[in-house]
Computed example of a mutant assay.
Amino acid sequence: MTDGDRHGAIRDFGGLAGRAPRLIVRPASVVEVAALVRDAATTSTEVVARGCGHSSRGESLTDGVAVDMRGMATVHELSATHIVVGAGATWRGVLEATLPCGRMPPVLPDYLDLTVGGTLSAAGIGGASHIHGTQAANVIELEAVTARGEILTCSPTHRSQLFDALRSGMGRHGIITTATLRLIAAPERVLSCRAQYASAAELIAAQEKIGADHLSGQVKSSVFELKAVVYDQSRPPRGLCSIDVEELTFVEFADRLRPDVDKMIEVGEWDRPHPWGQVIVPAVHAAAFIEQTLSGTTEADIGLSGVILIKRFSPGPVPMLRAPSDAVLFALLRTASPGSKTAAQMVLANEQLYDRAHLVGGVPYPPIPEVTSAI
C-alpha cells in the first residue's frame, strides 16, 4: 500500500485529464480488496479499480482510492475447458498459460497488454466476436467485491443479476477480482488475408458473409480494407478476393500490434492524448452512418497514428453493453498529434458522434457509466 503522488496527477491512456488519488493500493488478495472497500465506505471515499490504465475517458482515474489490480494476476486453475485467473492478469499472461496446453480464450483483444478485469468491465470486442460474441459473453464465473465490501461469486445461474451488472459495467457495480474464462482449441498457424472494398456497405456485407475465424475492417485513405484470418488452413476463405496473403504462427498473429506500439512509443505518439470515439450502431444503419461521418472527417481529425475501425460482431448476452443485436462497431481511434486537431476539438467531435449514434439506435463503446452507481 502506497500513498498517491500528491505532486502530480495520474493519467490514463486517453490522456485527457489527470487526477491525483488520495491513495494508491496494490492488493494481493480479494480479502485486501474487500477490507479496502469497507474502510473507504466509512468516509464516502470513491474506490476505482485500475488495471493497465488503458481507458480513454478517464474511467480508471479517481481523486479517492486507486486500486492497482496488477498485483492479482495469479493463474489459480487451468483445464482443457477453462482458466481461473486474477483480474489483474493481462491477456498476454493468459495466453502464456494456456498456449502450452493448446488452448486459448475464444476472443482476444487486438492489444494483449490489457487486463482481464479491465476488458470484461468494458465487454471486450475482438476479431472473433462475430462468432463468439464479446469477451464478457465467454465468462463462466466471476468473483467480485461489491460496494458493501462483500466477497461474492456469480455466474449465469448464480446471482445472475450481479453477474450481468459486472460484465460491461465499467466497474461501477463492484470490483472483479477473479474470472473463470472459457477455453477452446488454439491454432498453431494462421493465414491472414487482406481484401479491399469501395464502400462501408461492401465491407460490412463482406464481414457478414465471409467465413473466417477472425475478421476486422479498417479505413485507409478512403479505402475500406478487410482482414480475414483463418486458423490452420492453407487457403483463403471462399468468396474473398485477397490482394495479399500472409502465413504466420498464431503467437505472431496474436501479438501483431507489438511492433506498431513500439514504433508509437519511439516517436512519442503513445504518450499523446488519445480521445477515442467508439460507437456501436445497428447494422441496418451502419453503412450510411459511417459514410456520413467519414465525409466530414479529415486526417487532422484522426491524427498521425489514428486508426479507423469497422467491425461487424455479435454482442452475446451482455445486458450492460446495451448493444443492438445486429451490431457494428465504428471506432475513430484518434491521437492528438502535432499539427492535428487538439484533444479538446476531438472530444467535441466524439460527443457529436455519440449524439448522432443515439439517433439511429446506437450506443457509445465502452459504455458511459452512471456516476450514481459508483462504488
Rank of each mutant, 00 (worst) to 15 (best):
G217N: 02
K209W: 05
G211W: 02
K209M: 09
A205V: 07
S222G: 03
K227L: 15
S216W: 13
K209I: 12
V223R: 14
H214E: 12
Y197S: 01
I210A: 07
V229L: 13
S216I: 10
L215P: 01
G217V: 07
A200V: 02
Y197N: 09
V229G: 11
A206K: 09
A228K: 01
E225I: 08
D213F: 01
E225P: 00
V219G: 01
V223E: 12
A198M: 10
A201T: 03
K227N: 15
V229M: 11
D213H: 10
F224I: 02
A228C: 06
S199E: 11
K209V: 12
Q196P: 05
A228N: 08
K209E: 07
Q196C: 10
Y197K: 09
A198V: 06
E202L: 14
Q196A: 14
Q218G: 04
V223F: 01
V229H: 08
I210E: 02
A228G: 05
L226Y: 03
H214I: 09
K227W: 15
E202R: 15
E225R: 09
A201N: 07
D213G: 12
H214C: 07
A205D: 15
Q207M: 15
D213N: 14
Q196I: 09
S216Y: 14
Q218N: 13
A212F: 00
I210G: 06
E225V: 14
E208I: 03
E225W: 08
V223G: 04
A212P: 00
E225Q: 11
A200W: 08
S216D: 14
A206Q: 04
S199W: 11
S221V: 11
L203F: 07
E202C: 12
K220S: 08
Q207A: 02
A200E: 00
Q196N: 04
A198I: 02
E225M: 07
A200N: 05
E225F: 03
L215F: 05
L215K: 09
S222K: 03
E208C: 13
A206I: 04
S221G: 09
I210R: 04
L226V: 01
I204N: 00
K220H: 13
L215H: 06
I210Y: 01
S199G: 12
V229A: 11
S221H: 14
L203G: 04
I204W: 01
Y197I: 01
A205T: 15
Q196L: 06
I210N: 05
K227M: 15
Q207D: 03
E225H: 01
S221F: 08
A206T: 05
D213K: 08
A212K: 02
V229R: 05
S222C: 02
V229D: 14
A205P: 00
S199D: 10
E202A: 15
A212E: 00
A198N: 13
Y197G: 07
L203A: 08
Q218R: 14
D213M: 02
Q218K: 12
A198W: 03
I204D: 03
Q196G: 04
S199Q: 12
A212M: 03
S216N: 13
G217I: 03
S221D: 15
F224G: 03
Q218H: 12
S221T: 11
S222P: 00
V223H: 10
E225T: 09
H214M: 03
A201P: 00
A198T: 13
A205G: 15
